[in-house]
Design a protein around this nucleic acid. Structure first.
Lengths: 154, 154
DNA sequence: CAAATACCGATATACAGTATCAATTAGGCG
DNA sequence: CGCCTAATTGATACTGTATATCGGTATTTG
């Protein structure tokens, strides 16, 4: 579903929408001094084309024309620049997904793998307060919530 | 610090206190049908002797006389029987520590590695409510909080 | 244009954790 | 107590994820 044939001198265009997303991300990277390269665009486009959180390996498979190391490096860059966020499954498998906006947490469906942003959730403050009570100064956290999405609950 | 020499036909006794802990855990395992074996006791004793959350590899190093696979199996068993809980560092390194009581979360000091139980913290309910609002039925979660403990904050 | 730098990809490597399997051992039973 | 069976062990091989290396390519800048 990522691309039909992946020709056109290596540059495919999944959907107009995701093409815009790719351009946007590339622009933001450029703004931070990172070059606009073909393999990098392919990684971003493949990431943007995913419906659900995906693994690095899945991207590698989806992009046989891009080197493994390049895929991993691309993902790392995207995470560092907050374009992509990492999500952790219950078995500690690491997946990625485009980050929408600001900091938030995810609900992951154990059945279909879908993820939903956890909104209106001020865990942050509660955790900080609890940490304070233990004499800790909170600086970060890992939080993933697992369950079943609406469709998979029926 | 785990043991001075580790002799006495392979059975060392770190401290009277932890010896009691080992006996207790072994008894609980026996109650669930698991055998009382020398290597298993060594794993439990080594785990109990740790001051801070430890890795499986660290236990392997601390117990050169016990096979790698056995250490991993022992830890897995202890986690499954709720004698030991797993904690996740920011870099996704997996560590273990004896579980005290009931379900709770941990504050991990990024400096000294100490962990403190996060008490009086009802994140659970809040997460469940937020999940509901997204149409999810929560079934589990991963939560670790990072920061600096009192001593390392100075 | 030339030097400096970022980037790429093939490959080797590191590492955590599991699978395999023959040998050993704990615990129940007569 | 000594035997039998199933659980357990440990050496080793293996898997999967991720990074390091490094020669070569592409891009930017002066």
């Amino acid at each position: 579903m990522i691309s039909s044939t992946a020709k056109h001198k290596g540059h495919d265009h999944p959907t107009p929408a995701s093409a815009a997303v790719v351009d946007d991300i590339v622009a933001q990277l450029a703004h931070q001094g990172y070059r606009d390269t073909e393999p990098r665009r392919l990684v971003i486009a493949a990431a943007a084309a995913q419906e659900r959180p995906f693994t690095a390996e899945e991207l590698c498979t989806a992009l046989p024309c891009v080197g493994r190391a390049t895929v991993y490096r691309g993902l790392r860059l995207l995470v560092e620049t907050d374009q992509v966020c990492r999500v952790l499954l219950e078995d500690r498998e690491l997946r990625y997904q485009l980050s929408h906006q600001g900091h938030h947490h995810h609900m992951l469906c154990a059945i279909c793998g879908a993820s939903a942003d956890l909104i209106d959730c001020d865990v942050e403050d509660i955790l900080r307060a609890a940490a304070d009570r233990s004499g800790f100064r909170m600086s970060g956290h890992w939080l993933e919530v697992y369950g079943r999405c609406g469709e998979c609950s029926d």
